[in-house]
């Protein structure tokens, strides 16, 4: 059990790391055993083979590039799309949360687009943007923009009306109420949205790179599929998983820094 009363040689932090490592090692052992000793071995390459191939991919190129380049180009695509999604998502979310008029205009449109999975846009995006990077930005953008908007909208809707009243009482005009109260008080919600969105955007990259591309982690997987190379597919999956894990941790670290005031709820 992990709690503060545990009388142990390890601190809680150390314990959490130890348990995480144990869990990962168990997963690898089960994977290895299943792949080697059951009929699944036809479709599932053993863990040792995948990990070896994964580490080798940093030195030996898959296709024309090494893994670092594939990850880099995919990250670049996500970053561009994510930037657009952040700006538009926050503007739309705060606007809808604050202004009834804005809400009436954009909410129905937004609610219509929201449930459509990003992959459904692939055919259209090829027609509209051809095979350039723009089409990939478009797919990734759709994959993450909704999460940012929804969360920001929630945050702007949930601003304590007493705080807005207090600001008005102190002499703030509507513009000041918006920028000094509504926006900052939505920041924790916005960050929750960004955190989901960055992972969602990173998973949309595979779909986006299904559109004609010659590089990127998505391409590694698609390429592996068309050549029947299961090891290469798994290598791509492992790369996506690891990068996704790092991204999620980076955003939550950033949130802890920027929203320090929110650590304990003030009354």
């Amino acid at each position: 059990m992990i709690d503060s009363t545990t009388n142990s040689r390890f601190t809680n932090k150390q314990l959490i790391i130890i348990y995480t490592i144990i869990s990962l090692v168990c997963l690898l052992i089960v994977w290895e055993l299943v792949a080697r000793f059951t009929s699944a071995s036809m479709f599932l390459p053993p863990a040792s083979e995948v990990l070896t191939a994964f580490f080798r991919s940093f030195a030996e190129p898959i296709g024309q590039h090494t893994m670092l380049f594939h990850v880099g180009i995919s990250l670049y695509r996500v970053a561009v799309a994510f930037l657009f999604a952040t700006v538009i998502g926050i503007a739309l979310g705060v606007g809808m949360g604050y202004s009834r008029l804005f809400e009436a205009i954009f909410k129905p449109l937004f609610e219509f687009i929201r449930p459509i999975p990003p992959l459904a846009w692939i055919p259209l995006s090829i027609l509209w943007f051809g095979l350039s990077d723009t089409g990939k930005f478009f797919i990734i953008f759709l994959g993450c923009f909704c999460f940012i908007t929804v969360n920001t909208y929630d945050g702007a809707k949930n601003v304590d009306p007493e705080l807005m009243g207090a600001a008005r009482m102190l002499g703030a005009n509507e513009r000041q109420v918006f920028f000094k109260i509504v926006l900052p008080s939505s920041v924790p919600y916005i960050f929750a949205g960004l955190q989901i969105a960055v992972t969602a955007g990173w998973s949309a990259v595979v779909g986006a790179e299904m559109i004609q591309s010659n590089e990127g982690v998505g391409w590694v997987i698609i390429r592996g599929m068309s050549t029947g190379n299961t090891v290469q597919i798994m290598v791509g999956i492992v790369a996506i998983g690891i990068v996704g894990f790092i991204l999620a941790n980076l955003t939550s670290a950033l949130e802890r820094r920027l929203c320090a005031w929110n650590a304990q709820k003030g009354i």
Binding site: G165, A166, A167, M169, A172, S185
Partner: peptide
């Protein structure tokens, strides 16, 4: 209007602002 000041039961301080920014909010806006 700022000619009338209000003190709330829940204090309703702006939690993302420091003490001095809270107190200075009225004069600044």
């Amino acid at each position: 209007a700022p000619e009338r000041g209000f003190v709330y039961q829940k204090t309703s301080l702006f939690p993302w602002m420091t003490v001095e920014d809270n107190v200075g909010f009225g004069p600044k806006v």
